[in-house]
Computed example of a mutant assay.
Amino acid sequence: MIPYIYATPEEVARAVAEEAFVRPSQEGWVHIALSGGSTPRLLFSLLAEEPLRSAVRWDRIHLYWVDERCVPPTDPDSNYGMTKATLLDHVPIPEDQVHRIRGEADPEREAKDYCWLVGSELPFDGEYPVFDIVLLGLGDDGHTSSIFPHEPQLLTEEAPYAVATSPKGQRRIALTGPTILAARRLLFLVTGEAKAPVLRAILSSSPEAKGYPAAYIAGHRPDAALYTDVVL
């Protein structure tokens, strides 16, 4: 990974906003896969405010999700629900350019349907659909997307999306390894000292990082950009 280190989470979020939303949308159409969880919340909030809100060409952006919890969009756990409340309700993005994963649907069926949707919207590299930007997070157990260490088969699963299960038993729909790696650009957004040990392990290629899904992705895409406030 190529690190870009900033002093505060807000500076990190502003840099990612410029790289993932502002500049690409000013250049043309852009298809972005968003991660959920708590880390992107600040990014979304800043994008919903001026001056970033007006700097983005929302009419040129298509949004997708890297992963989703299998819950209704009104559930506090819903990645889409969080994104809607912090970003989508506040920016002029066309409704038909927001492609949510239906967490309330049957997981196996929805994973297949979302594979079809992504395949119909994106170009292919010969095997896999190609996002312009995939925005990834990092869990303190080394997971990314909803690919956890106990389900390494999702790192090589050929279907673009598949059903995953968190260590606590929650079912999720997750973007899988090959389609993550096929993206034109990969951006890791990692903030907070709680993420420091796992991030340092990945960057130093320490033995403990061998089973981390995020380490697998980083190892296969050395050009992935890391935006962080962690001192490395």
Rank of each mutant, 00 (worst) to 15 (best):
P3L: 09
P9M: 07
P9Q: 04
A17M: 01
F21Q: 00
V22I: 14
P24I: 08
E27S: 13
V30L: 10
I32W: 04
R41G: 10
L42S: 09
L42P: 05
A48F: 05
R53K: 14
R53P: 05
W58V: 00
W58C: 03
D59V: 00
R60T: 12
L63S: 05
W65C: 08
W65R: 11
E68F: 06
R69I: 07
D77N: 08
D77W: 13
S78D: 12
S78I: 06
G81W: 07
T86I: 10
D89E: 15
D89R: 11
I93H: 07
I93C: 02
G103R: 03
C115T: 07
W116A: 15
S120T: 15
E127H: 15
L138M: 00
L138V: 01
T144K: 04
E158Q: 13
E158L: 12
A159L: 13
A159S: 15
A162E: 14
V163C: 04
P167A: 07
R171I: 10
R171L: 14
A174C: 13
L175H: 11
L175Y: 00
G177L: 10
P178I: 08
I180V: 15
A183W: 01
F188G: 00
V190A: 03
A194T: 14
K195C: 04
V198L: 06
V198Q: 01
L203K: 01
P207E: 11
K210S: 14
K210R: 15
Y212L: 08
A214D: 06
Y216W: 15
P222I: 00
L226P: 05
T228R: 07
L232I: 12
L232W: 13
